[in-house]
Design a protein around this nucleic acid. Sequence first.
DNA 1: TTTCCTGCAAAGGCTTTGCATAGGG
DNA 2: CCCTATGCAAAGCCTTTGCAGGAAA
Lengths: 148, 148
Amino acid sequence: MKTSQRAFSLLESSGYKVTSQRQIILEIILNNREKHMSAEEIHEKANKSNADIGLATVYRALELFEELKIIHKMNFGDGRSRYELWEEEHHHHHLICTSCHEVYEVAEDLLDVLEHKIENKYKFKISGHQLKFYGVCYNCKEDKKDES
Amino acid sequence: MKTSQRAFSLLESSGYKVTSQRQIILEIILNNREKHMSAEEIHEKANKSNADIGLATVYRALELFEELKIIHKMNFGDGRSRYELWEEEHHHHHLICTSCHEVYEVAEDLLDVLEHKIENKYKFKISGHQLKFYGVCYNCKEDKKDES
DNA sequence: TTTCCTGCAAAGGCTTTGCATAGGG
DNA sequence: CCCTATGCAAAGCCTTTGCAGGAAA
């Protein structure tokens, strides 16, 4: 469980306290990689398996984790923010199904060439990116059976 | 002013009415390409130069335009949705400065290869994409003067 | 005339904030 | 002990909705 160690020393060295609530919240995120949970969902999970944590505390912890680059806030267009581990090189993309609204992760990155081009042409120092593809996933294709 | 013609025939053929409010709202969007305006900003502009349009009407028009693929709703992480013309092949990306929060547009696309790869590997039929780069823009670079 | 549209205000949903208490270092 | 963190409830935003009057077709 390296990630949590790193995260907590980061908290300490930044002058923040390692509270039980923060530990629980981070643990939930770690145990649910690739789930893109909302604050509400994290809150529910926390209170299902542990003591009572206030929703406001969840929001404050998430804000802090984001500031420390432990997690990433994202938006998939459903009106609430979703969170994901930062992952050193968080070089993956998301496929969002416009039919069932499922979100899939894609390992490929391949944006390096494009990034360099943009950095030079626009004099813009890139520190991160977020790429979403919209479309219809395998499970939602009408002609799914024909493909067997 | 081709785009608005196309938009209004689309409205009619879909059974919606061409009202003055919808015309004004679309006109504002057309006259402010690349501005990524929020509903509130469109509302302000509308009431500055014209009669009174309710904010709810703006939201309803934007929702309709999005459904008809006349515009695109996006999210730049500032808590409100922003809108942009659909533009047949809306193949451009956004540079978001983490310092001044300005949003720039990039003409390059170059995602075709990646898209095909993903379509095949994940059996996902892609219909659109959205790519955001985060970083520091030219105007916010500290070493700006050294580069002259 | 009929049906859809608009404005207003109220309601909704997510997120943030104020304040008194609890708890980490 | 001191100072930050938490919980609760209230407040803040952005967005959506209900409803009665108004405007397209």
